[in-house]
């Protein structure tokens, strides 16, 4: 695995002068460091492997094309912002497609009867990848599946805030910047998300 050059907020160092611009190697190392978490973030949101990969690829392209030469310190926040926008764009496209599908199905008898409803895809259970193995590993895997499932079930803004704050370890101000909302909203979203997750785990009898 390549060295984690500014691939995580906690690795960032503050500079007083204009920092050097990101080279191709630095951008590559940054992307390699964040791509798996980015894929998981997208997967929790869109709940589809191929769509999640498309979202991440889209975000990587946008970062490289528009901000690829920015200083390495700026890349984490920029990438998070771009990733969240790419996820929103995916849902916008889904909404437009759903609208046209509904319109055609109303106008043309029989149109779209065999098509799958996008909402079915969105509501699909993602917990089908449980790893096989010894009973303890299986139990642990099921717990992790359940946690991922519950994270995925959170309302979009709550999930976004929770992941940015606790998984990406951004502070409240940075999270607010990425989400385009106030710091108070970030705190509220995080609090609700944490409360929901804690309640779900408790109801299932899971002790972390």
């Amino acid at each position: 695995m390549p060295p984690a050059i500014a691939c995580h907020p906690r690795d960032r160092t503050s500079t007083t002068r204009a920092p050097p611009l990101a080279t191709r190697t630095e951008l590559s190392a940054f992307l390699a460091g964040v791509e798996r978490r980015a894929y998981k973030q997208a997967l929790y949101a869109v709940r589809d492997d191929a769509a999640a990969l498309d979202v991440v690829q889209d975000a990587m392209l946008r970062l490289a094309e528009k901000y690829g030469a920015r200083p390495p310190d700026e890349l984490p926040l920029l990438f998070q912002r771009i990733l969240q926008n790419a996820i929103r764009d995916y849902f916008r496209r889904q909404k437009v497609r759903s609208t046209w599908t509904t319109l055609f199905s109303a106008l043309i008898p029989g149109y779209g009867e065999d098509d799958t409803d996008p909402l079915d895809t969105l509501a699909a259970e993602p917990g089908s990848r449980a790893a096989e193995g010894p009973s303890e590993a299986m139990e642990r895997s099921q717990v992790l599946d359940f946690i991922e499932q519950e994270v995925s079930r959170l309302p979009a803004r709550q999930r976004e805030a929770f992941i940015l704050r606790y998984w990406e370890e951004l502070d409240v101000a940075e999270t607010a910047l990425v989400m385009g909302c106030s710091e108070g909203s970030v705190k509220t979203h995080c609090s609700r998300a944490t409360h929901t997750l804690a309640a779900a785990l408790k109801a299932r009898g899971i002790e972390l």
């Binding site: 951008l27 990969l53 991440v56 690829q57 392209l61 490289a64 094309e65 690829g68 030469a69």
Partner: peptide, 17 residues
């Protein structure tokens, strides 16, 4: 696929540079 996406993105950065 993620590695391929990364490589593709880096190619685009190269073009832009």
């Amino acid at each position: 696929r993620l590695a391929a996406a990364r490589a593709h993105a880096l190619e685009r950065q190269q073009v832009r540079e």
